[in-house]
Design a protein around this nucleic acid. Structure first.
Length: 355
DNA sequence: CACTCGTGGCC
DNA sequence: TGGCCAAGAGT
């Protein structure tokens, strides 16, 4: 009776799971890379990045030997860029301080940057067969619905309760398949919307199915608040070179490149912006014109992005500006909204109004 | 603990 | 369309 859940789950997984490249290996480097890429990211979105990374950086030494800029450029467009920065930090630690060998236990893995509770369990289980249960968003949803858990998923006690259940049902053999099955259930059948309960082998013992409350579990905690920000980018092109700067500070897109940016509290008029440019960069009569607008919607922010073309000749650059040749722009990691602008600009030329 | 970090897809 | 969501982790 106690083994029935794990036996059924393992059997279901073996029949219905998707074939994915990181499931064909026990190489800790590849498993680790896939787990980082898939944090808060769908398989469909992360797959091409995984394939690109193992091609460009086949081993942890290749990744460690690259610069952070190179890693960020490969990561461009995937979001949550702290993952890429921590990926590089941890690669250097493993390559240069640990002889290229990954720690083989959850307790050691979790000490590494970018590897938390979920990822340490995943690597320990998938690579080293450590009997530790993974708890990610899929598992919260699947087990939460099965057991009828209505406490918010962001509470530690909710996670603890799920962990107790999983420990009680953790199999003596095939623990890694059990873990894969937990997540694959959440990804294929026990989905956030319109779960496919008819094909679920656990529907007879599932609280949510029996009580028809699948949509009410898991219970989300707080509501998302969206902050509106106004980014005014200066597109400055001189002699086929374009001004860029590196974003710093504890903010979005840290260590990515962007055009010189003037952030304002509200939308600004052309004359307002000219005055700001005059004050900030000591450019006497800035000649600017708006060439593109984007509403860039993020999870917690809505960015109103305006690209302004600045036509003055600039004799003395601020020290943090870099001038990149237009052929070289693609070698800089840009936020999605700017790589999209650059694509539009390269294709269409100067006059474009995108919203 | 509460908040923050991206992007694309879905309805 | 806007809100929700996805293999979480750092601070």
């Amino acid at each position: 009776m106690h083994n029935k859940f794990s036996n059924s789950l393992i059997a279901w997984y073996q029949e219905y799971h998707r074939k994915l490249p990181w499931r064909e290996t026990k190489d800790a480097y590849k498993i680790w890379l896939s787990e980082i890429i898939l944090q808060q990211t769908r398989v469909q979105q992360g797959l091409s990045y995984y394939l690109k990374f193992i091609q460009v950086f086949p081993t942890v030494f290749d990744l460690a030997s690259a610069t952070e800029d190179e890693v960020l450029t490969q990561w461009q467009g995937l979001g949550y860029y702290s993952r890429a920065r921590n990926l590089h930090l941890t690669a250097k630690k493993i390559a240069f301080e640990m002889g290229g060998k990954f720690p083989n236990s959850k307790s050691e893995l979790i000490k590494l940057k970018g590897i938390g509770d979920y990822t340490s369990s995943a690597i320990a289980s998938f690579c080293f067969d450590e009997p530790t249960a993974v708890i990610d968003g899929n598992v919260f949803r699947f087990i939460g619905r099965m057991l009828g858990i209505f406490s918010p998923i962001d509470l530690p006690e909710t996670k603890a309760r799920i962990n107790i259940f999983l420990q009680e049902h953790f199999p003596k053999k095939n623990g890694n398949t059990f873990n894969q099955g937990l997540m694959e259930m959440g990804a294929l059948l026990c989905t956030p919307k319109n779960p496919n309960c008819e094909e679920c082998p656990f529907k007879m013992s599932c609280y949510a199915f029996q009580n028809n409350c699948q949509a009410d579990i898991p219970v989300k905690g707080k509501k998302i608040k969206v902050r509106i920000r106004h980014f005014n980018y200066l597109f400055i092109s001189q002699e086929n070179n374009i001004a860029l700067q590196k974003r710093k500070g504890q903010d979005i897109w840290k260590n990515l490149y962007e055009f010189p940016c003037i952030e304002t509290d509200q939308e600004v008029s052309q004359t307002d912006l000219q005055n700001i440019i005059n004050e900030k960069y000591k450019i006497k009569n800035p000649i600017i014109s708006s060439i593109a607008n984007y509403n860039h919607q993020l999870t917690h922010q809505k960015l109103k992005v305006t690209i302004w073309k600045l036509d003055n000749y600039i004799a003395e650059m601020p020290k943090n500006w870099i001038f990149a040749s237009s052929n070289d722009i693609n070698n800089f990691a840009l936020p999605r909204v700017l790589s999209r602008f650059w694509e539009d600009f390269s294709n269409n030329g100067l006059q474009l109004q995108i919203v």
